[in-house]
Design a protein around this nucleic acid. Sequence first.
DNA 1: CACATAGTGAAGTATCTACTTGACCATTGG
DNA 2: CCAATGGTCAAGTAGATACTTCACTATGTG
Lengths: 115, 115
Amino acid sequence: MLDQTIDLDRTFQALADRSRRSMVERLTLGPASVSELARPLAMSLAAVVQHVQVLEACGVVRTEKVGRTRMCRIEPAAMTAAEQWITDRRRGWETRLDRLGDVLSEEAANSKEHP
Amino acid sequence: MLDQTIDLDRTFQALADRSRRSMVERLTLGPASVSELARPLAMSLAAVVQHVQVLEACGVVRTEKVGRTRMCRIEPAAMTAAEQWITDRRRGWETRLDRLGDVLSEEAANSKEHP
DNA sequence: CACATAGTGAAGTATCTACTTGACCATTGG
DNA sequence: CCAATGGTCAAGTAGATACTTCACTATGTG
């Protein structure tokens, strides 16, 4: 429960990279090996492994070694935390706007009552 | 419409920093000047200005100079794009799980029919 | 066995990030 | 006017990031 901030740092950081997002997109279709994730990307396998490690460090991806291949699957709970942070901020902002709307419509009503 | 990827990069990157997230949280309560944003943070005013520029570059914050103070307000549309990206991935992941659930319950039904 | 495939580990590097300091400019209030 | 306040600009820096290459270790397959 504590130190969600570090996880949020890591998760947003992880999603701030196009290659890593494309890996996540691929993994929403189902589990894949590291070299499968590497195939569409123009970089070395070693680089892809490093990206996978970033995704694993923030909990967005879980991996498991099967024989000589490392299978990756998505673990959406970590992404949900990030999503939730944004949602909460938006809700705060929207309720503030709602109150502003209330004030404005109340003022409008008052000016109708006292023209 | 095109090049949302760059904006997504920038938005996630912007949110990947505790100080910037705390500025966004403050701004959901209402507009604030740069020095108001700086007050609770243990860093120089110049550093805060740079953070504000990051938030402005990805569209999450809009600023306007009034006299000698720069007022900042939140612009939630940019954050919505980031939120939406996560939501879409989760939806893809969930529907995949739903289909898996269908397959499993169908298999269960079959094994009941042919025990 | 021999060879290919899949990944690991370490080291190096160019670029980016999150700051700092210090000089400077603009607005405002006494 | 003049001092304080609010911000700007430029330059520098320590550490992080996103790669690379190369040497190496499993693990499958003909």
